[in-house]
Amino acid sequence: MKAKSIYLLLIPGLIVVVFFLFVPILMIIVPTLKGDQGITLSRYIIFFKDAYYMSILMRTVRIGIITTLICILLGVPVSYYVAKSSPKIKGLLLAAAIFPQLTDSVVRSFAWMTILGRNGIVNSLLVSAHLFTEPHMFLYTESAIIVGSVYLFLPLMIISMVGVMDSIEDDLVEAAESLGANKVVAFFKIIFPLSVPGMIVGSVLVFTGTFTAYTTPQLLGGNKNTVLATLLYQKAMTLSDWTQASVLSMVMILITLAVMFSINKVASRFYVRGV
């Protein structure tokens, strides 16, 4: 096929994406950099010097990091087990991970509201077991957001690691064991390092997903635990402070890109070393 007609097939899609994605994003970002004389970063300097904004940024990053670490910790053994199961069990376990992935995030957060709420399942269990005399507030805390985020993104971690785990030869583990390593050592010395590429892909997805999530922090975090995404919505729609919302947009885009870029850089070093 001639190059010309190939470009022709791409044009409608490119026009739509450029006009309805790139133009709108540039339109919100460019004005944040405009000063009286040329380009200015003053709006960003103000943002990064503001203690309130910084506490929200830090909370968002903290939730993202903790969620990602928990997902790695749980995702590695589970994805290994899934990958090494018989085809039937494997299909079943994969389906059970994909199902929540395709279920509405409002439904998934609502499930945790009913579990962690004041009259929720955890509280009624604890009170009826006489561990607590009155209900404890689990909901509307940072921990609730983390639990909800792990719930939201653990399937993604498992799914992105199963493929990599598939390719780990069983012989390697058996060899390690026959040479005297116990099961735990074999796991950490063989399976863990070999699963790093999948772990990196999964971590990028989990961190950026948690970092930018709106539904879970909104429903499980309440008003006190604002994160960047909920702050952006407040600024844009409740307060109509479009300039600040645009600054926040830029900050979110830059951090997302920086994380993707730097983690991929680390990943490529691993590949070079042949791990």
Partner: peptide, 25 residues
């Protein structure tokens, strides 16, 4: 580059997409 342009909507945070659509459209 073209491939990345088509995949890019996935990279932009959802709320940023929403805000940009709101301002533009």
């Amino acid at each position: 580059i073209v491939q990345n342009i088509f995949i890019s909507p996935i990279i932009v945070p959802g709320v940023v997409l929403g805000f940009a659509f709101f301002r533009f459209l």
